[in-house]
Structure formats: structure tokens, C-alpha cells
Design a protein around this nucleic acid. Structure first.
Lengths: 197, 197
DNA sequence: AACGATACGGAACACAGTTCCGCTTTGCAA
DNA sequence: TTGCAAAGCGGAACTGTGTTCCGTATCGTT
């Protein structure tokens, strides 16, 4: 019903047929290139592989960040939606939180360079930041709240900060065999626990 | 007695007078520019502010990373040397570890963009990585070992991984008022504690 | 003073993102 | 079917940044 076509992507039903097809091709090609060459693959490479000109790619996705958002939108949404589900099906809020964070970490770690670009201070990626955070922070906050109410974790944890921290820990997790982001994230989550006794 | 002049910097006593003076000027200027414009300031800016040509800067510091190393070398060394001291003067190894990590975090957080560049997957910065890690990982390992022996922390913590994790958590700590790296690092360090029962 | 080694400056190159605009294709309407 | 304005396309060109190269200037030694 909604066929918007803003920066955040998504093919609508309102544009010319060839334009729609190009957008789809671009999305698929970009996804493929991101897998093999990482999220920082040159725009030219993607354009070339997709068989379109640079102008085309920039018309559909005004900036690299928009392309990245479009490519990963579904997965981010899926992660966000998994939050409430996990909360409902897990034995405890803390367990749900842990599993959800694992989901997020798995996502980030498998996308070469995504975590790094998420943290890039380059203002071009502001839209990327915003999308991830808008979508995931509320979910994280919900899980955190539940765990806090259940008395399982310290009460002073900020969802935004935690997402940032977890995202940061995932930077460079690929491309460095000696660094296991999951391990560090586990430690961080362990640190969330209320000092008990 | 040692007047080496490798990539890692340091004015020796063997070069021409003007060369030595330029190197010193460059170091001072770079330090100043890094403070105001961050570690990613364009090389040209530094050259201009120092009143030298690009060739000069590149002769003295073959790559940006070398310049950064040279500028922060003293501080990194100081941090490394503080490790044993803290271990000797702190009430417990775990306390020493915490203080030492704080030192490191304070250092990183006050250098705009340093943490990010430390983690940049750009191979140009390999030398930077290497220097930081070579210098700090052994110290961290020593503190970790002491804390482990004292039974204060989990036994399976790798110094390299921990340094990486802490460094990562510091990325973007400046330029984002909502994110407090120190807070996240504290959580991580708390997560190190041996789960007691 | 002369001269070779050393160092200097900055033009030029490589490479990335992004903009711009003349040309092509599409789809509607006559 | 044909004509044509709007929509879309391609890629040359521009910007900004790291880095290289080399003709020229400076140093310090003889």
C-alpha cells in the first residue's frame, strides 16, 4: 500500500519499470559485493557489477549509507522483531537479552566492516546510524527494562549506550583471528548482572 | 646513545641540523593539530601549519601512522610503565588492572579519533596497531596474570582480546554525548570477575 | 669557494565519493 | 502507430585526501 521511495529505499510501484528493475538489480548486486568485498566496496565496483552508470546508483541511493541501509533493512527489522518474541519464550528476561544481543552480534560480525562503518564519525553515515538505532534501541530498552524489573541486572543501564558498546565490540571482528567479539560481548553482558549476594 | 631514526620516529643526532629541526617542528605541530582537529586531520593541514612542504612530512614520517605513533609514543610508553607500578602499589591485582585500564581509556578518549584509527582495517595503520599492542599487551597480560593468580577474575581472559575490546569501546567516545566509553569499559571489567556464588 | 650529499617544496598521481548534464528510453495520448 | 515530454541513464568531471617524484635549494665538508 505504501510505495514511498525515500532515501531509506524500497521499490515502490510508482516509478518507471526500468527504474524499478535497476533498483532491484542494484540491491542484489550490492548485497553480493558487500559479502565478497565488504561494506566499503567502492561505489564504482557496485555500479560496474550491476551494469549501470554511477548516476543511476546515486539516483536510487543518494549516498552509500542509503544503499547499505536498503541492503540490510530486512535483517535489521528481523532482529528488532525477534526481541519481543525472545522475551516471551525465554525462561528469563536476562536470557532473552543475552540471546537477542547474540542475534545482533551475529548479524554485525558476518558483515565485513559494517560495525566499523556504523561507528564511523563520517557524517555521511548519520542516516545509517539513525536507522539502526531507531530500530534497535527501543527493543533493547524493552529487554533491559524487563530484566531490571526482574532484578537480574544493574538498574542503571542505558539501552543506547549498550547498543553502541556492543556495536563497537564487533568492529574488526572479521579480519582479526585473534579477536573474538562474541567473547567480549559475553563479558560485557556478564558485567550487566547485578552484583549479587 | 641510541640515535635510530626508523619509521617509529625520534630525532637522532646524525642528520642535518635543518632536518632535525623540521622533524621536531612537525611533531609539535602535529600534536597541536591532532588536539584541535583530531587524529584524522589532513596531512596537508599539518604541513601547512608547520610551514613545510608535503615532501618533508613524508620523508620524516613515511605514512600518517608513523606520525601518529611518533606523537603519542611517550604517552603510550608512560601508560605501559604505569602497569607494574600500579600492581605494586594497589591493594589488589584487580584494582591495579582497573586503574590501569582507566589510564588507557583516559588516554584514548581524549585523542579525537585515535581509537577509531587504531581499529581501522586500513593496512596503513598496521604499524600503529603493532606499536600500541606490542607495548601494552604484555603489561595487560601481567596484570591479568596477577589477578588470575589471586583468584579475582575468570581464568580465560586473553590480554590481546581485552585490549582490543577496551580500545573498541572507546571508539567515538568523543563526538557522542550519549555514549560514555568509561561506563561500558567498567561493565566489561566487571564482567571479568570470577562468577562467585 | 666549490661541490657532493642531503633535504626541501609542491606539482602530479591514485583513488574514493559525489555532482551534473546531454542523451536515451519509456509510456501516455492523439 | 507515432510523437513527444517526462523520467531515467551513463559517465565525464569535480572535490578532497594520501602518497610519490623530482628539480631545486641548503648544508657542511674540503
Amino acid at each position: 500500500m505504501n510505495d514511498r521511495n525515500e532515501v531509506t529505499g524500497q521499490a515502490g510501484a510508482s516509478k518507471r519499470k526500468d527504474a524499478r528493475r535497476n533498483q532491484e538489480t542494484l540491491l542484489e548486486t550490492a548485497a553480493a559485493v558487500f559479502v565478497t568485498s565488504g561494506v566499503n566496496a567502492p561505489v564504482r565496483d557496485i555500479a560496474a557489477k550491476a551494469g549501470v552508470g554511477l548516476g543511476t546508483i546515486y539516483r536510487h541511493f543518494p549516498t552509500r549509507a542509503d544503499l547499505i541501509i536498503a541492503v540490510y533493512r530486512h535483517q535489521v527489522d528481523a532482529c528488532a522483531e525477534a526481541g519481543p518474541t525472545l522475551l516471551a519464550t525465554s525462561p528469563s528476561p536476562h536470557a532473552a537479552l543475552g540471546q537477542w544481543i547474540n542475534l545482533f552480534v551475529d548479524f554485525l560480525v558476518t558483515k565485513h566492516g559494517l560495525a566499523a562503518v556504523l561507528r564511523s564519525d563520517n557524517s555521511d553515515f548519520e542516516a545509517l546510524h539513525a536507522y539502526f538505532l531507531d530500530r534497535l534501541v527501543p527493543v533493547c530498552a524493552e529487554l533491559l527494562e524487563a530484566a531490571t524489573v526482574a532484578g537480574e541486572i544493574r538498574p542503571d543501564i542505558d539501552a543506547y549506550e549498550l547498543m553502541r558498546g556492543v556495536g563497537n565490540l564487533c568492529i574488526g571482528a572479521d579480519s582479526d583471528p585473534r579477536y573474538d567479539a562474541r567473547h567480549m560481548v559475553d563479558l560485557l553482558i556478564a558485567g550487566l548482572r547485578r552484583p549479587h549476594h
